[in-house]
Every structure is written in C-alpha cells, then in structure tokens.
Design a protein around this nucleic acid. Structure first.
Lengths: 168, 168
DNA sequence: GCCGATTTGTAATGTTATATCATTTAAATA
DNA sequence: TATTTAAATGATATAACATTACAAATCGGC
C-alpha cells in the first residue's frame, strides 16, 4: 500500500532503459497472471505491451488503431475495452481519468493506490506513492468523517527535465 | 489558496439550508461577474442555478435536458458547454473529471484548488481544502522536482451520514 | 472428443465534447 | 439615437470515448 515508488517516467535522461523496463513489465505480468490463474491472452498481452511501450497515457482508440496497424488484426472498440478492463482488474494498468487514457503500472505486485504526476510538456505520467501523502490524506478524510474507497489523484505540471528544457 | 473549507454537501442533516445556500451562490456569482466586467447572462445564470440546485455533480447532457424542460428553450450541446466553460473560467463551478460532471463552487471569491470528496451512496460532492494536505502535496512534488500547475484530487467513498445510514 | 465456461468478433448504439458558420444581442462610439 | 463592433447564442454536423447485446471461436476439465 505505502510502497515507496520512484517515478519512472521522469528518469528518462538518467539511464532509464526503457526497452528493459517494458520487457520486465511484460514478464511480471505473465508471472502474476499465472500465479492468479487468470489468462494473459495474446490480445491482452499485446494491449499491455502497447501501453507500456511509452510512459505516456494512451487512449483506447489510439490503442485500437495501433492494434489494427501492427498486425492487421480486425478489432472493434469492445475488444480493446475488454482487454483494458482485464488489465485494470489485475492492476497491470491504471486509468487516468482526466485524460481518458491508460498507463502501465510498474509495480503491479501488490495492488496500490495510484497517484500520478503528469507532465504537460513531455506527456509522460509517473506514478508516485509516498507514505507521507497517504497518511495526510487519511488524516484529512478521517477528520471529515469520510471513508475513502477509491482515489483519483492526478497532478499536472512540469517534470524536472522539462523545466530544464524550458529554460534553454 | 489555503482557505479552510468545511464540506458543505455533507452537512445536509445538520441544518444546511440549501435554498439559502443556492441563492447565496447566485448572488455571489452576480456580484463577482459585475466586479470582473464579465457577463452572467440569463443562460449562464440558469446553468449555474441548475448546477447549484443540488450538491451532486451533474453531467452536461443532464443540464441540457433540464434547460430544455424547464423553459422550453431550444438548446444544443454547445450552448451548455459554452456556459460551462464560462463558469469554469470564472471559478464558479468545478469539473469532476472522474465523473464527467460539474459541481458548483461554494467559495468562488478567490480562485483555489478544488479537492473533492464524493459520496458513492448519496452522490454528493464536497469540496475540501486543508492547508495540511496542500502543504504535503507541495512538499511531495517539490521533492520529486515536479512543478504542479493543475490538480485533480477526487476521493470517492462514504460520507459520515451515509455511513450511519448503512448501519441501520 | 465433448461440454461448459471464457474469450473474442461484430454490429449497433449510447454518451461526452468540439468544430464551424450563421444569427442575434449587447456595448461602445460617434 | 443610429451605427459599428464585439460578444454571445443558435444550429448543424461530427469527433472522441464507451457500452450493450448477441454470435462465434477458443480453451480447460472431464
């Protein structure tokens, strides 16, 4: 729940090996699905791969196009949405409500609250999860007598790299 | 910015006079628009009134229906969306991204970050704004080198009242 | 191999939001 | 007050996002 998570998407310049990162996500997904006795079918795996191909949130229809393009697969919206539903259920991706888009989860081992930083310049989304913030949210809502069951925390702005780029 | 805000929507049972509340919002809106030299036209005022009629977020097409029903006004989607854009710009309403819906702002005097508690049982949304949480968010994002320009914080769950109701 | 359950295909439709251009209304100015 | 100009609204079409319903195919367990 309160797992420390270094934002991956914004580590790009500092030796983030994305190909490796993506492969790892796919491997982890395969293992988790096996453990959970659910099926990571080719289609689902494909959608996950497309999503994890970048750290930018992708819309369902973008995924649909890419599916069609990539392997001449005839696909309709439900095809993608069903795959997305599965991946969401398994905690392998997250939905970014304010963008109607989806990003890969890079810590799918244990289910967790997804808090996001989204850079308006590079488009990358980074998941973050700090105990302090969780605690503060808990404390605040406790005080108000509100029992939280689900969170949407999406912070937009500029990542560190893009702030530097801006100055140039 | 860090104005203490007692969630209004969840004070219903404790003497929240909603008619008065709604009237006050409309009056404040009128005054603010006058001060700002922008026009709170009948249409915009009407949409604001509909939104503030309850504390439940309303979708654009619900508002459209209500507009049409209420005064036989012929209206198309852009009519509503333009009014909503205006009200958003003026800080008189907020958009709840995870619901594609809109709620009134009950503290429109000074622009502020909208953080929301949304009860899944009664459907009410309450704005909250605590210095502690703001500070923690600031601190967390500072540490990550991220410069926030816009926030979507929407917490779903049960309000205090509905928790009581559940127990019955 | 057969049966039931899960997954995928397909067509249609629902929901949310925007683009574009014409028309009307309000405000500013002469 | 008449005229000009800007702002707001009307109207049509369409884009973007998402779901329903039912048929066909595929997978696992027996």
């Amino acid at each position: 729940m309160a797992t420390q998570h270094i934002p991956l998407a914004f580590t790009g310049l500092k030796g983030h090996n994305h190909q490796h990162c993506q492969q790892q996500v796919l491997n982890t997904a395969a293992r988790l699905c096996q453990q959970r006795h659910v099926r990571l079918t080719p289609l689902r795996r494909e959608v996950l791969a497309l999503i994890c191909h970048s750290h930018r949130p992708l819309g369902a229809y973008t995924l649909l196009e890419q599916l069609q393009a990539q392997q001449g697969r005839r696909a309709a919206p439900p095809t993608v949405y069903r795959a997305l539903d599965f991946l969401l259920e398994q905690g392998l991706i997250h939905r970014i409500a304010s963008l109607n888009a989806f990003v890969g989860c890079f810590q799918p081992e244990q289910p967790h609250i997804g808090h996001f930083l989204i850079c308006e310049r590079c488009g990358n989304a980074a998941e973050f999860d700090t105990p302090e913030l969780n605690q503060q949210l808990q404390q605040t809502t406790d005080q108000l007598g509100f029992k939280v069951t689900q969170q949407t925390v999406e912070l937009f702005g500029r990542c560190a790299q893009c702030q530097q780029q801006d100055e140039v």
